[in-house]
Design a binder for these strands. Structure first.
Lengths: 200, 200, 200, 200
DNA sequence: AATGAATGAGTTTTCATTCAT
DNA sequence: AATGAATGAAAACTCATTCAT
């Protein structure tokens, strides 16, 4: 056990969270019983409570881990000072990378974040949406201002179009499929850019 | 019970189903209690069972009504013998019309159909997906064959791209917002066509 | 159903609360399962939740009803402007009347209030103790000042002596026993007064 | 394992039992989790099972140790052949000495013995009550017969009065407070004797 | 048509206890 | 002696559903 290795506790937690995330993504959070997660993890339902406070705590940890990593990526991209086209490209690419790494978490976030954020416990999820919107919208607006992107479209609609296009992919993407996440990102980006770029 | 005066029973059912659909869409099907629907309808939970057999029956009726109307539209479009571009345009337009009319039902279908179709009761939902895929895929392939649409993209990816782009709109679209469903359809179509059409 | 009759809802609740109070008093709050209360009430455990939010809510309602009535009695006594001996007598008599009417609630309060009031939900219970102490202590101090009561005793000890003597009776008193609550009050008072009154 | 050096094992047990008794007294036996005791002892819940067979075994040992010592004291007093007044005095004094030494155990016994003795495991606790009653009642009756104590009171009520007065003190007495146990005993006895002694 | 009161199956959660290390 | 990770039984609670009125 080198200094780099996470403590076994943390490893076990991560394993269990990965299992839980998979089941949540497949069945939906509410339709998933704690027993089912425990079955998938090869233990009894009660045993999960040695590692986690509650079913909600598991969900929270899954979503928070994903969002934290996502924002680390996005912030790096946004801080890089790229032009609008390249920024857009980097955001799309990084998003697919997140889908590749945190597929189940992304799928859960897509389906559940909206009604979850109404509960105090998950109110913090609501914070990501405006940050999200700001990041993409800023980029699109810069692109329009610099005449890279079409001016005849409502930029808010374009934002939703791009956002949805990218993230919904989490609901069908499976690592190890025909195309890599990179390749999917490339083709998506090719369509999106062709769709919103000024002709000239 | 003439064609002019639908029985009041049917009207009440429709009202209640609309209420249920709204709540299901907002909270998620599993997270929605029968009591909550009853609250929203101004009655007690038990009273709903005078009108419906079960919570599942409500959901089934909501989804089936939507799918029936959707397929009626789609079949008309597909039978019209239009070219690929116009077929695509009509499908997108009709889809947004459905979102406008059955917003909550569409949102529910998006979120829940995948894991619902695993249950026998909702197995029939699974049938729509291949029909759906076939309709869009055929159109896209015809477009590629006729050199209307780009050949450098995986047509299955394009299918998912277009499908997701259109349908996920149900999760944020609200009738009476800034743009009409028609206008949103127009701008989406403009982006999508620009994205997948061959340049020339 | 006259205007005086409480609504059936309230009657049922009161019945169920009386049952719950009896079981709580016999077994202790924590050792009492919801199922046991339901058994005693002739229904299933889940059915209790139609009437009450939780086991804690039942306990709270039981204790609050008792304390409210108790303070109404005490406040009347204290406002009557009686001398120390008569005030003491009235307080003891009223206390035994409460024990007679709310026996189980009193017993529960005696056993559980101390550790319950550490929980936020039951923090309000803590408020009764100082009011209690104040009422009795004031009376005892007046008695000492007026040379009715002995001055050679620590008045705080006398307070605890009298308080405990009276209230612990709730743990063994059963209505319909050999002595009425009135008679017990009379004899207790006779001992207590003989114990703390100045000779002469 | 000489008389001078008790084995360290026994010392550790005693420490742990003292800790457990304190927590049981504060929170109530049922409301106390094994984990809480372990926390207070600076170990993990499972580790307690190296020292004790079960939570019940701890409680049993705590109560038995207290009762054994109590009866040793009482038996000595009762065998001394004192008159009723002195016997009563000695019993009260010894009782407060027990409260001083075994405060938590006494408090637990007061609160829990009644419903515990319904369980086979703790059936032996039930044996103390009649012995107790016999000891006090005999003394009171002798006092009445010898015209030391008032004859106008129900001697059973007097018994309960004295018993409760003394033992409930365990719920508020803390060693190191304003008054020593001895001093409290003296004042209590002064009141009780004044309360039940014939005037002359 | 709707209510009020229940049912009963299932869910999350708790916790005393065990046991390999 | 003590830990960490489990077990398993039972607890509180939820909720779709039923039914007499």
């Amino acid at each position: 056990m080198s200094a780099i290795a996470p403590n076994p506790n943390a490893e076990r937690r991560a394993e269990l969270l990965a299992t839980a995330a998979r089941v949540f993504a497949e069945q939906g959070y509410n339709a998933t019983t704690v027993r089912r997660i425990a079955d998938a993890a090869g233990m009894l339902a009660g045993s999960l409570y040695y590692h986690f406070d509650s079913k909600e705590a598991m969900l929270d940890e899954i979503l928070t881990a994903f969002l934290d990593e996502l924002w680390a990526c996005y912030d790096t991209v946004l801080a890089a000072g790229l032009g609008p086209r390249d920024t857009l490209g980097a955001l799309v690419t990084q998003s697919f990378r997140q889908i590749d790494r945190h597929g189940p978490a992304v799928a859960i976030y897509q389906k559940e974040s909206k009604h979850l954020s109404a509960q105090p416990r998950f109110a913090h999820l609501a914070g990501s949406q405006p940050k999200f919107e700001h990041a993409w919208l800023r980029t699109l607006e810069r692109g329009v201002a610099e005449r890279d992107f079409r001016a005849d479209l409502d930029v808010r609609l374009v934002y939703r179009f791009v956002r949805d296009t990218v993230w919904v992919a989490a609901s069908w993407y499976r690592p190890g499929g025909v195309h890599s996440a990179q390749e999917i990102a490339r083709q998506y980006l090719s369509m999106v850019l062709a769709g919103i770029t000024t002709r000239g």
